[in-house]
């Protein structure tokens, strides 16, 4: 269980509060108007935005931990790769931050790349890849890090519908194997329906507790109705 206990974020001219729990080993979507605080919530969970209240994972308070010690991998919307490192090195950073990869590490990197459909591309540089392929590389790194919580901040927003669905399927497949807990920020209701078991709506400075996806769409909250228009 991931518990947000009286979580409150106050930035310049912006407020957000959340007070609920998220179930483990499933995908949860976060929806809401742009500028509402979807990304900010993920940033707070990952340890990049200060907040009051507690974040607990399996009963342990993780609020005070530095980002690298949290049980969390985060995928950003863009810039997930260092342009001057090869694909294999970018993935390898997930295993060894100093990039001193053993033969075993290297085969692990190669496996992870194969898992996301990029076998043999390890020596390429990020600029030689398409936008979708770059996000696959970042996903491969997430696979290797084996953290129990994945935070995805609209990483596929720039892709077309078919490609986006493929990527979501890939994410969901791998997530199941690792029994990870996934939080996906998206502005596309169809993405939420596609992989999320439950959905969180962020409205007027408040993140509402997760609702089963079917009920979320069949009995929408008043704010969500307005959002869909």
């Amino acid at each position: 269980m991931l518990e947000l206990d009286n979580l409150h974020i106050a930035l310049k001219g912006f407020q957000l509060s959340a007070d609920f729990s998220i179930r483990e080993n499933r995908s949860t979507a976060i929806l809401g108007p742009s500028g509402g605080g979807k990304s900010t919530l993920l940033m707070a969970l990952a340890g990049f935005t200060p907040h009051s209240g507690q974040i607990r994972w399996r009963g342990h308070n993780i609020s005070g931990l530095p980002p690298s010690n949290r049980p969390i991998s985060m995928l950003f919307q863009e810039n997930n790769l260092f342009p001057q490192l090869s694909i294999a090195q970018n993935v390898g950073l997930g295993l060894r931050p100093d990039l001193r990869l053993s033969a075993q590490d290297k085969s692990g990197v190669e496996e992870a790349l194969a898992r996301v459909g990029l076998e043999g591309r390890g020596a390429d540089l990020p600029k030689q890849l398409s936008g979708g392929e770059r996000q696959r590389v970042a996903l491969a790194r997430t696979v290797l890090r084996q953290k129990p919580i994945w935070l995805l901040d609209e990483p596929f927003a720039a892709l077309g519908p078919a490609l986006r669905r493929d990527m979501l399927d890939l994410v969901e497949d791998i997530r199941k194997v690792q029994s990870a807990t996934l939080l996906l920020v998206t502005h596309a209701p169809e993405d939420a329906r596609h992989i999320a078991k439950s959905c969180i709506f962020i409205d007027k400075n408040k993140a509402l507790p997760p609702v089963e996806t079917e009920r979320f769409f069949s009995q929408p909250a008043p704010g969500f109705k307005d959002y869909l228009g």
Binding site: A46, F48, I72, E78, F82, L93, G94, P97, D98
Partner: peptide
């Protein structure tokens, strides 16, 4: 990009890696 600095923090990159990147 700000993401690169966050990434470095999340991956706990050490000083040599930060210097290089």
């Amino acid at each position: 990009p700000a993401e690169h600095f966050r990434l470095a923090t999340q991956l706990d990159l050490g000083r040599p890696a930060r210097f290089r990147l």
